[in-house]
């Protein structure tokens, strides 16, 4: 086990941790988006979905704990890797020229950190009621938590929606590189899969951006009320 431990904290080991947790978190982001898009199917369906999740506390809390672990590991690996990377070049070049590296790849830490703070806000906003405690008290006709009303109310303030657009843009920038990098780290981005994976990463990032932003946008232009 010692050997395994040592290997996992090697440079490549940390990259695997990064990749595996990244993959799981990516899966969550997709599932989360699909769940939320149910808002376009109407109040009934969305609130039903919310009630369904609440009715399975084991599943809900399991998922929440799992997500916390995943995020912690992902952040831990990111911090450790970044520390190593910073230490690896103690003296910077006088002339900085970047060649070939994409903007997304050079800003992973920054986009990741901003996304993390966005997630905190997002949780405060809709899960913990930190922004407006009223949100958690909304009830619909069937006595269920009125998720629909909460979302519409939450996005009615343009400044909040704009913050969400920015957060999503950064998340998607992060994913556009991260998704293909995770395949790279796991050694699966080979041969003719390279282009397919890179394309998939960009397409997935764009889809998530469009999908998630469609909700506040729909609220702002009055499509969802």
């Amino acid at each position: 086990m010692n050997t395994l431990n040592r290997r996992c904290s090697s440079s490549l080991g940390k990259k695997y941790v990064m990749a595996v947790t990244g993959l799981a978190l990516f899966g969550f982001v997709v599932a989360h988006m699909v769940g939320n898009l149910q808002i376009f199917l109407g109040r009934e369906i969305l609130n039903g979905y919310g009630a369904f999740l609440k009715s399975k506390p084991l599943l809900l809390w399991g998922a929440r704990l799992g997500l916390i672990c995943l995020v912690s590991l992902h952040v831990w690996a990111a911090i450790r890797l970044t520390q190593d990377n910073r230490a690896a070049r103690p003296v910077a070049y006088a002339v900085q020229a970047s060649i070939s590296a994409s903007y997304a790849s050079r800003t992973m830490l920054m986009s990741g950190l901003i996304v993390a703070s966005f997630i905190v806000f997002h949780l405060m906003h809709f899960t913990l009621g930190g922004v407006d405690p009223e949100f958690l008290e909304f009830r619909d006709g069937a006595g269920r938590h009125d998720v629909y009303r909460m979302v519409v109310a939450g996005f009615s303030t343009p400044i909040v929606s704009i913050f969400y657009f920015v957060g999503m843009a950064l998340l998607c920038l992060h994913l556009s590189h991260g998704v293909s990098a995770l395949f790279q780290s796991l050694g699966l981005r080979t041969g003719h899969w390279v282009r397919a994976i890179d394309l998939f990463a960009k397409a997935a990032a764009l889809t998530i951006f469009v999908g998630n932003c469609s909700i506040p946008l729909a609220v702002l232009i009055g499509l969802l009320k």
């Binding site: 090697s10 490549l12 890797l81 990377n85 060649i99 070939s100 590296a101 050079r106 990098a181």
Partner: peptide
């Protein structure tokens, strides 16, 4: 890889600059 790590090199973030130069 163990030797590489102990020399104090950084980690790959797949930017591709290495390949380019």
């Amino acid at each position: 890889v163990e030797a590489m790590d102990s020399e104090g090199f950084g980690n790959c973030t797949v930017t591709g600059s290495c390949e380019a130069v």
